[in-house]
Amino acid sequence: MLRSTITMLWRALAVLSLAAGVIGVFLPVVPTVPFVLVAAWAGSRGWPALERWLLEHAVYGPPIRQWRERGAVSRRAKWFATVAMSGSSVMIWFFPLPLWLQASVCSVMFCVACWLWMRPEP
C-alpha cells in the first residue's frame, strides 16, 4: 500500500512537471527544460516508461542527457533564458508590487542567470 502510494506521488510530480513544461512551450515566461528535467527525474523513481520516453524524445532527450551526464546547458538555452529573465525583470517594474518584492525577484533572476552561465556547455 505505502509503496504504491509513493509511486503514485512520483508519477503525479512527473505529470505536473511535464504539464508545466508543455505550458512553457507556449508561454515564454515559463521555462520548459527545467520542468522536463524534473519530470524525467520523478519518472525515474515512479514511471520508468515516461523517463525512457523523455530520454528518447528528439527535442528534450538531448538536453536531459547532457544535464545528467555533465550538468551541461547549451549556449542557446543560456541566451534564451537570460533574455527571457531580462524581459521579465523589465516587465515586473510595471506591476503595482512593493519595491522590495520587485527588487527581490530581479535579484533572484540575476543570480539564476549568473549560475546558468557558469554551467558547462555540451
Rank of each mutant, 00 (worst) to 15 (best):
M1S: 13
R3I: 06
S4G: 12
T5C: 11
T5L: 14
T5S: 11
I6C: 04
T7C: 09
T7F: 11
R11F: 10
L16E: 05
L18G: 03
L18S: 03
A19C: 09
G21E: 00
V22G: 06
V22C: 07
V22H: 03
I23K: 01
I23C: 01
V25G: 05
F26S: 01
F26L: 06
F26C: 06
L27R: 01
P28Q: 07
P28T: 03
P28S: 07
V29C: 09
V29K: 04
V30D: 00
V30R: 00
T32G: 00
V33M: 07
V33T: 13
P34G: 09
P34R: 03
F35D: 01
F35E: 00
V36D: 00
V36S: 01
V38S: 00
A39K: 01
A39L: 02
A40D: 03
A40R: 03
W41I: 02
W41S: 01
G43F: 00
R45W: 13
W47Q: 03
W47H: 08
P48R: 11
P48D: 09
E51L: 05
E51K: 02
R52T: 06
R52A: 12
W53F: 12
L54R: 07
E56P: 05
E56N: 15
H57R: 11
H57W: 00
H57I: 07
A58I: 05
V59K: 08
V59N: 06
Y60M: 00
Y60F: 11
G61V: 11
P62K: 09
P63K: 04
P63Q: 03
R65S: 12
Q66E: 15
R68C: 05
E69M: 13
R70F: 10
R70V: 06
A72G: 10
V73D: 03
S74T: 15
R75K: 14
R76I: 09
R76G: 12
R76V: 10
R76T: 05
W79Q: 12
W79E: 08
F80Y: 15
A81V: 02
V83A: 09
V83G: 04
V83E: 06
A84E: 04
A84C: 12
M85A: 04
S86N: 13
G87T: 00
S88C: 10
S88E: 10
S88T: 13
S89M: 13
S89P: 02
S89K: 10
V90D: 07
V90T: 09
W93A: 10
F94G: 15
F95L: 14
F95A: 12
P96F: 13
L97S: 05
P98H: 15
L99D: 14
W100C: 08
W100I: 09
L101G: 08
L101H: 08
L101I: 10
L101D: 07
A103P: 00
V105M: 14
C106E: 08
S107V: 07
S107K: 07
S107W: 12
F110E: 04
C111M: 14
C111T: 13
C111H: 07
C114V: 13
C114P: 07
C114D: 08
L116Y: 05
W117L: 02
W117S: 04
M118D: 08
E121L: 06
